[in-house]
Design a protein around this nucleic acid. Structure first.
Length: 211
DNA sequence: GACCAGGCACATC
DNA sequence: GATGTGCATGGT
């Protein structure tokens, strides 16, 4: 994948907090739409937990509108902002120092932060090693016959983490490459010709046979 | 005009 | 525990 796409530079963002905002806004949403909202948030000077908390509901809805689900995402963003202010005085660097297991549990307890969003935050905003699984990851591996197509998030994450050295840079790059591969090659079943992973196909049993 | 996009929570069975 | 559904906009 790397030889096909080169370095992905996955997850643009000038700050850890911006990455968190993007992670929440991109839930089931195309990144191009998220960028529109991020631009509005920045131009309105709202890119901080306190600024978002202080903003009116109308303002929040207006800036979140381009990325869809704006009512629900406004609530989810505020839940995270209140958490960050209450427990870390709004400081992402302080949050990022939380030990990995505790960090993950804590994030998952915030309303609106599910497994993928939590892992995006941990890997890209907090720079700690978790393997981010997303719909493309599952689709690519199931279409190649390597895992069951209904494999759960945690079993798939555990699988990757058991096979790979825990390395933040590499985990960031794997996720970016899998996303690009999914977008470009994984449109049709069982798998698309030209996929960079095609040379790995074999008659072997699935790597993970069941949930 | 249908379908999808870098999910999650909640209701119902 | 498993399955279905609402959330909403913008691009293809």
């Amino acid at each position: 994948m790397h030889s096909h796409f080169g370095p992905t530079g996955w997850w643009p963002g000038d700050s850890a907090f911006e990455i968190v905002v993007g992670a929440i806004l991109t839930q089931n949403t195309a990144w191009t739409n998220v960028e529109k909202s991020l631009d509005l948030i920045k131009s309105d000077g709202l890119l901080s937990p306190q600024a978002l908390i202080d903003s009116s509901e109308e303002t929040l809805h207006r800036v979140l509108k381009p990325s869809g689900f704006f009512r629900i995402k406004a609530k989810r963003l505020l839940h995270f902002c209140h958490f960050l202010m209450d427990t870390h005085d709004g400081d992402m660097a302080s949050l990022a120092r939380t030990p990995l297991a505790e960090l993950r549990t804590t994030l998952l307890n915030i309303h609106g932060i599910g497994p993928e969003t939590a892992d995006d935050i941990i890997l890209y905003a907090c720079q700690q090693p978790v393997f981010v699984v997303d719909s493309y990851t599952r689709r690519i591996f199931s279409r190649h016959g390597w895992v069951a197509d209904d494999i759960g998030y945690e079993p798939l994450r555990s699988f990757f983490e058991s096979q790979l050295e825990a390395n933040v840079d590499q985990f960031q790059e794997y996720h970016g490459l899998l996303d690009l591969t999914g977008k470009e090659f994984c449109k049709t079943r069982p798998h698309c010709s030209g996929c960079p992973l095609e040379p790995l196909l074999s008659d072997d049993q699935p790597l993970v046979s069941s949930v």
